[in-house]
């Protein structure tokens, strides 16, 4: 038992983080919002990094890595507030197709010319699907109503897992913005971050985020290993990540004071994405009910005769 990521896994995630930090900052989000929200150069950059082929088997020209790595990268996409449908296509759609043995044409996903729109009865909207985009609270996402939806639970679990992973990255980014602001904004002759009334709220966000992350990684590994208990792990992760992100979003706005309510502060891009993803692929109530059913309905092995895995 070892709960660490390998150096290779961490290096991969850091590479993506650095790349996105360098090419996809808040000024890019503003440009996309104001001048049209899709820029082919951004997608091409992701393709050139090999990210569209991350979960595509090596025989089809991809990197063939597993869901834990994909979840790490999805968290980086959240941190950068990336709106391109990379996570949906490459980390939800591709693993779903691979699980069904549908390997034809995955080379085109690697090359960036094919997207894999995915929709589930619980989540009947496709990221960057065909047709006109619906107006969303998140100005950078392009959701379309799906013509056809699947009811495959594996797809739902993949979608929920990768939403949770993005949410912990989003939460990290919002906490960082709030902490940095609290260090420089002064009132009553000192940085507002020195006041306990404010720092304790940010500390609570840090607690929620740090404890949500390992649950997300655990869920990714459970999905990778196709454990029977994987759906419950995914629901744990989705609820914990949603709670962490929403707590951090509301706290970060509060910390920014009236500025936090303005378009001028970047925070709202992350806050809106968080809100959107909390409801995606099964909302909080849906996933809480799955945990509830497992615990009280007897499908989760608990009690003195079991260890907890």
């Amino acid at each position: 038992m070892d709960f660490r990521f390998s150096d290779d896994q961490l290096t991969l995630a850091e590479g993506v983080r650095d790349y996105l930090a360098g090419t996809h900052g808040p000024e890019v989000l503003r440009r996309l919002d104001e001048q049209g929200n899709r820029d082919p150069a951004i997608w091409q950059g992701l393709v050139d990094m090999g990210l569209t082929g991350l979960c595509v088997p090596e025989a089809q020209g991809g990197l063939g890595v597993g869901l834990p790595e994909a979840a790490l990268i999805a968290a980086e996409c959240g941190r950068a507030c990336l709106a391109e449908p990379l996570v949906d296509t490459a980390f939800v759609g591709v693993p779903w197709l691979v699980a069904q043995g549908k390997l034809d044409g995955l080379e085109d996903v690697v090359a960036g010319t094919r997207r894999v729109p995915v929709a589930h009865a619980i989540n009947p909207w496709e990221a960057d699907g065909a047709g006109a985009a619906l107006t969303s609270v998140d100005p950078l996402r392009n959701l379309t109503a799906a013509g056809q939806t699947s009811d495959d639970p594996h797809l739902l679990n993949l979608g929920a897992l990768m939403s949770a992973a993005q949410l912990v990255g989003l939460a990290d980014a919002m906490l960082h913005q709030a902490v940095e602001y609290a260090k420089i904004r002064t009132q009553f002759g000192q940085p507002v971050g020195a006041f306990q009334g404010l720092k304790h709220q940010l500390a609570s966000c840090s607690v929620a985020i740090e404890f949500a992350k390992p649950v997300v990684w655990r869920a990714a590994q459970a999905m990778q290993d196709r454990l029977d208990s994987a759906p419950v792990h995914v629901s744990h992760a989705k609820v914990a990540a949603s709670d962490a992100a929403m707590l951090t979003a509301e706290t970060a706005i509060q910390v920014h004071g009236a500025m936090g309510y303005t378009y001028e502060v970047d925070l709202h891009f992350w806050m809106k994405r968080s809100w959107a993803l909390c409801g995606a692929w099964g909302d909080r109530a849906y996933h809480l009910k799955r945990v509830d059913d497992a615990v009280l309905g007897g499908t989760l092995p608990i009690g003195p005769e079991h260890t907890f895995a």
Binding site: E210, P214, V215, R218, H236, V239, A240, D292, L296, L300
Partner: peptide, 19 residues
Amino acid sequence: QRIAKAEIGLRLMRYGALR
């Protein structure tokens, strides 16, 4: 619902401590 939340909280601690 509170039992489900308690279960989630326990898992948070579990994997947090292992990490």
